[in-house]
Design a protein around this nucleic acid. Structure first.
Length: 877
RNA sequence: GGGGUGUUAGCUCAGCUGGUUCAGAGCACCUGCCUUACAAGCAGGGGGUCACUGGUUCGAAUCCAGUACGCCCCA
């Protein structure tokens, strides 16, 4: 038989993925005889392509879902995509631009037509990429946040919340791009470090009957906004300005009187310690203005020119106005000085224009009521965050929650179902027709027509559809009692990144309680961010992110999956190194070769089984490791679970078990050993399958002929079983003995093929006999036997309190041996001293629990025995 | 500025209720091996003042306080 010494993942992966799909293993239907296990995918942007973050995230979900499926649960992983209004609209705009089409020349309908065309053509590539990773999603259930049913749910929820008084209109500061004529999200704003100028201006203090005018100097980077000033603020503790408390000042040039207000917000050391307050044109000033109930004067037009409110420089661009006012101020003698300082300039990602903070009317969703149950369920562990350290962060955010701005000045998304009447009032309804009925009723004007109503131009924030995701993918709004939602909801586990804990996770929890009176999921597993080896976030602009598909191509999906999970505990960032994936690939190869070895054996049914001890040991060892693996899973320690499987396969199964039972070259194996070994390999494949689905399925089928649906993907997950700790412990000692022998070979340059003899002088154990065979095989020993006395002319070592001798036929370096033994003797004596010290401390003996004390006594006895043995050996040298 | 969180081997991290699985794993490194499953491998080995300072305790990597540095989220 010839099987390649290297595992070749390419065709294997394609073959099994297709095969799993064909047989419908990924598909789920409600089954009352089975326990449901449900995951909804965090929907990636429909425009997105697979990046390393998706890889990690979806590998974890696939591990969880595959394990649940093997456990016999009705496993359902719902995939889908998010319409991502900002990102998608930006891509469509860019694409149209390449074709010479400007968005502003299109109507809303024309633009949306292009957008949908584009979505149909390029959208959802990412889902195809997930298949390459092996993701076992139920593709029949693929959903999209902007498909009809899901959009209908969004509108329904909006109307519902509006009627409950949870949605209102209000003013908010937005990032305005005067060149693009649009508001931008924070993500679309690029901060640029620049040198800016700080202008120091004199505001005249209003003082009746003063002989000469006195001034207060205010520092500002934006002198052209002084016409929008409504106050000057100083810190109440600032000694320089005590005399101004309760006074007023005049705006330079304009002469308008404004109050001096006191607020600790003003930092005494920055600028002159006096701050002009311009609520319409600065976020901090806006908040200050709200706090002190000051008016808001907006002096800018959409395109960045000054309007009538400014009174001066009307019609001029903000930068031209700045130049002019500086000149005028200078001439008026009110400009004290100009300073250069390092500042951060906010610019538009798309037009490069300097961002103008601007007040605008937006829609908000109240959060305080919904936050209550959402906070409580996490605090009392109804919903568990993994790792739990995120609970604190969650709490502080939820306790200081702000209302949610849900409107966006875009076209791609669900248009807000608010309809304006000609008089400026509005009604909210699911359709225009319903809106008309409402509008007629509320206005008392029965003559109103559809054409008199104007729907709000804005669309809803994308999160306003994704917060409904766990409910809407099962049509829980359209049909609240359908069998899917009743069966699959609440879902089990959610796997996502901590950076969207608030944007998304918290809001889904709120929506769950608000609309279904039930949590949306029981566990939230928070992954870390995938970074490069220097700890930098992976990003397109840095070019430090490998293409996941290239990696799969090069190392195989199984190798990449394992690589991603090595060293990525929950909540910790993953410093991605291609070496990890290499390790994953090497692991694939290791398993492959173990399979090759077993597959290559000829069986001789007449042979007796010489491997009882090894067989008994691995059975116990498997059960012990399996219990650890299950424990890791129960705590969502996926990385640790994989590492435990890794060691079980590599160390226990390959390095130890297979070496113990391996027949000599070209010798046949007995039937019992072979059958048991195949059973063991199957068990190992099972626990490995969630992590490395392809190679395990391949070996599963190569190992034996299988019936039609007898696939590993649906094979029964092992059950916890008892294990013999004694056998495991003894084998550990045996492996230590073997290690010591090998070490001696190594240090004495004794070739592996030269047999050595071993004599055991038992102190504590006399149960090594069943393990003699294992020792002989692994250490290449000839004679192995118990003795009563030390052996002269032998190298000795101690394992678990017993002394072992290897006769050396005179080629012992006596000095070296004496030195080694002396060293060990000294160490042991020191150890004994520390134990004695502890035991003679009365407070320890009276204070420590009995078990700790008896343990110390045992340590003392062991150490004393060891010292005696070493001393004897030294004497015999 | 507010809140959170972290610092253990060269790197990435475990270490759960303070006490023999307490200083551990993987990778990297060093030495020797192409020994018929695997050089993508085998065997062996070296390496840490558990950030710093103090406290609690019979006993601290572990609990508490402070300091330094880092990261995350919000503003």
């Amino acid at each position: 038989m010839s099987i390649s010494t290297k595992y070749n993942p390419k065709e294997v992966e394609k073959k099994w993925y297709e095969s799993w799909m064909q047989r419908g293993f990924f598909h789920s239907e409600p089954n009352p005889n089975k326990e449901p296990y449900t995951i909804v995918i965090p929907p990636p942007n429909v425009t997105g392509v697979l990046h390393m973050g998706h890889m990690l995230n979806n590998t974890i979900q696939d591990v969880l879902i595959r394990r649940a499926r093997m456990q016999g649960k009705e496993a359902c992983w719902v995939p889908g995509t998010d319409h991502a209004s900002i990102a998608t609209e930006a891509k469509v705009v860019a694409l149209l631009k390449e074709r010479g089409i400007e968005k502003k020349d299109l109507t809303r309908e024309e633009f949306l037509k292009y957008a949908w065309e584009w979505k149909e053509k390029y959208g959802g590539i990412i889902l195809e990429q997930l298949k390459k990773l092996g993701a076992s999603c139920d593709w029949d259930r693929t959903r999209f946040t902007m498909e009809d049913d899901l959009s209908a749910a969004v509108i329904e929820v909006f109307v519902d919340l509006y009627r409950k008084g949870q949605i209102y209109r209000g003013v908010r500061m937005v990032n305005w791009d005067p060149l693009g004529g649009t508001a931008l999200s924070d993500e679309e704003v690029i901060p640029k470090d620049t040198m800016a100028k700080m202008y120091h201006l004199n505001y005249e203090v209003v003082a009746e009957g003063a002989a000469a005018p006195t001034y207060i100097t205010v520092a500002t980077s934006r002198p052209e906004t002084i016409m929008a000033d409504v106050a000057v603020a100083v810190n109440p503790n600032d000694e320089r300005y005590m005399h101004l408390h309760g006074k007023s000042v005049r705006i330079p040039l304009l002469g308008k009187e404004i109050p001096v207000i006191l607020d600790e917000y003003v930092s005494i050391d920055f600028g002159t310690g006096a701050l002009k307050v311009t609520p319409a044109h600065d976020l901090n000033d806006y908040e200050l203005g709200q706090k002190h109930k000051l008016p808001t004067i907006d002096i800018l037009n959409n395109d960045g020119t000054l309007n009538e409110q400014a009174q001066l420089y009307v019609g001029q661009d903000r930068f031209a106005a700045r130049r002019n006012i500086v000149k005028d101020l200078q001439e008026a003698g009110l400009l004290v000085k100009i300073e250069e300082y390092a500042s951060v300039l906010q610019t538009s990602e798309r037009t490069g224009a300097v961002i103008e903070p601007r007040l605008s009317m937006q829609w908000f969703c109240k959060m305080d009521k919904m936050a209550g149950p959402a906070l409580e369920s996490v605090m009392n562990d109804e919903i568990r965050l993994h790792p739990p350290k995120f609970k604190n962060m969650y709490r502080s955010w939820m306790e200081n929650i702000r209302d949610w701005c849900i409107s966006r000045q875009l076209w791609w998304g669900q248009q807000i179902p608010a309809y304006y009447l000609p008089d400026g009032s509005f009604v909210v309804a699911t359709t225009a027709e319903e809106a008309l009925v409402l509008a007629r009723k509320e206005s008392g004007n029965e003559n109103l027509q559809l054409s008199d109503l104007r729907q709000d131009e804005d669309v809803l924030d994308t999160w306003f559809s994704s917060w409904l995701w766990p409910i809407s993918v099962f049509d829980g709004f359209k049909d609240p009692d359908n069998k899917d939602i009743l069966y699959y909801y609440p879902t089990n586990d959610l796997v996502t990144a901590p950076e969207i804990l608030f944007f998304w996770v918290a809001r889904m929890i709120m929506a769950g309680y608000e609309f279904r009176n039930e949590m949306p999921f029981k566990n939230v597993y928070l992954t870390g961010i995938v970074r490069d080896t220097q700890g930098r976030k992976m990003s397109k602009s840095l070019g430090n992110s490998p293409d996941p598909l290239d990696l799969i191509d090069q190392y195989g999906a199984d190798g990449v999956r394992a690589g991603m999970l090595f060293s990525s505990p929950a909540g910790n960032d993953l410093l991605f190194d291609e070496k990890l994936v290499e390790q994953g690939r090497n692991f694939s190869n290791k398993i492959w070769n173990a399979f090759r070895l077993i597959k290559g054996w000829e069986v001789d049914e007449s042979l007796p089984c010489p491997n009882e001890t090894a067989i008994k040991w691995f059975d116990s060892r498997f059960n012990e490791a399996f219990a650890q693996i299950e424990d890791h899973f129960s705590k969502f320690r996926i990385s640790d679970a994989l590492l435990a499987v890794y060691k079980l396969v590599w160390d226990d199964f390959c390095s130890n078990y297979l070496e113990m039972i391996k027949p000599a070259y070209q010798q046949p194996i007995d039937k019992q050993t072979l059958d048991t070994t195949i059973d063991y390999l199957e068990k190992v494949l099972k626990v490995l399958h969630p992590f490395m689905p392809f190679i395990t399925e391949e070996i599963w089928h190569d190992l034996k002929a299988r019936k039609d649906k007898e696939y590993l993907i649906v094979a029964a997950w092992p059950k916890k079983d008892k294990f013999d700790k004694q056998v495991i412990d003894t084998m550990e000692s045996v492996l230590n003995i073997v290690g010591s022998v090998r070490n001696i070979r190594n240090s004495k340059n004794i070739p592996n093929n030269k047999q050595l003899d071993l004599f055991i002088k038992v102190m504590n154990h006399d149960h090594y006999e069943p393990f003699f065979g294992v020792m002989r095989k692994l250490a290449n020993l000839g004679e192995v036997q118990y003795v009563q006395e030390s052996i002269d002319g032998a190298i000795s070592f101690i394992v678990s309190g017993d002394e072992f001798f290897i006769p050396m036929e005179g080629n012992i370096d006596l000095d070296a041996e004496r030195e080694r033994l002396t060293k060990e003797l000294e160490y042991t004596k020191g150890f004994l001293l520390s134990v004695d010290k502890k035991l003679s401390n009365e407070r320890f003996v009276s204070g420590a629990p009995e078990s700790v004390i008896s343990n110390e006594r045992k340590k003392k006895a062991d150490a004393e025995a060891k010292i005696k043995a070493i001393e004897q050996s030294l004497a015999s040298l």
